[in-house]
Structures are given as structure tokens and as C-alpha cells.
């Protein structure tokens, strides 16, 4: 998994900026769960296409739909470099380690 593009997104809020982060492949549960190491991860499993949202306190949030290859990054003004660096590190770490989802969690979410 790697980030291949970051696109600007229009939004209405004055203190935050949004970008769409494009991955080279669809986001699967394994990848989404791995992002939980960065902050608080919420996973809305009961939807036609599950939604997930990562909140990294005081820095950024990242949200997406499982199996999409795009996620929405919302960061505080002036914190883009720090946010994207943290995200790139997490993506690279996932690619290296490729941790499988714990069996118990996979059963709970299936």
C-alpha cells in the first residue's frame, strides 16, 4: 500500500483544510485497523459499505469507505506536513509489516 496522490477538496470550515488521499489499492480491513495505532479509530461495520474514521488528537482526522482507494484527510491549518508525514509513515509501516487482523476482531466484525 502506498499514497499515490493528494488532491485538494473544497470545504466550508475556516480552521481546517481537507484533502483527498489516494492510495494505490483499495483500503481493506487489515489496513484500516493498522491505522488505529495513530489514534482513535471508529469503524461503522453495519453499512452497505463500511465507514471508518481515524482521529489523531490535535492534528488530523482521516476517514474513508472500506474498499475505496480514497480517504478524506482533514487537518488543522498549518499542520499539513506533520499530518501527511505521520500518515505516510503509517502506510509504509503497514506495507512492511502487513499485520493480519486479529482473529477475534475479524469474527466480531464479520
Amino acid at each position: 500500500m502506498k499514497i499515490v496522490a493528494v488532491r485538494e477538496v473544497e470545504d466550508c470550515f475556516d480552521n481546517t483544510v481537507s484533502r483527498d488521499v489516494v492510495f494505490d489499492q483499495p483500503t481493506d480491513l487489515e489496513f484500516i485497523v493498522s491505522l488505529g495505532s495513530l489514534g482513535r479509530l471508529r469503524y461503522y461495520h453495519n453499512l452497505a459499505r463500511p465507514f471508518w474514521r481515524l482521529q489523531v488528537e490535535d492534528l488530523f482526522s482521516l476517514k474513508g469507505i472500506q474498499r475505496n482507494n480514497v480517504a478524506r484527510l482533514v487537518f488543522k491549518k498549518g499542520h499539513y506536513a506533520e499530518s501527511i508525514e505521520m500518515l505516510v509513515d503509517a502506510v509504509n509501516r503497514f506495507s512492511r509489516e502487513h499485520q493480519p487482523v486479529p482473529q477475534k476482531l475479524a469474527e466480531e466484525l464479520s
Partner: peptide, 13 residues
């Protein structure tokens, strides 16, 4: 129906 699905669908990880 979509809103009904969205209410109460969360799992905290």
C-alpha cells in the same frame, strides 16, 4: 433506510 443503518453501526477499535 440509509440513516437507519448509520445509527448504531459503530465499533470502537
Amino acid at each position: 433506510s440509509a440513516i437507519r443503518q448509520m445509527c448504531g453501526a459503530r465499533v470502537e477499535m
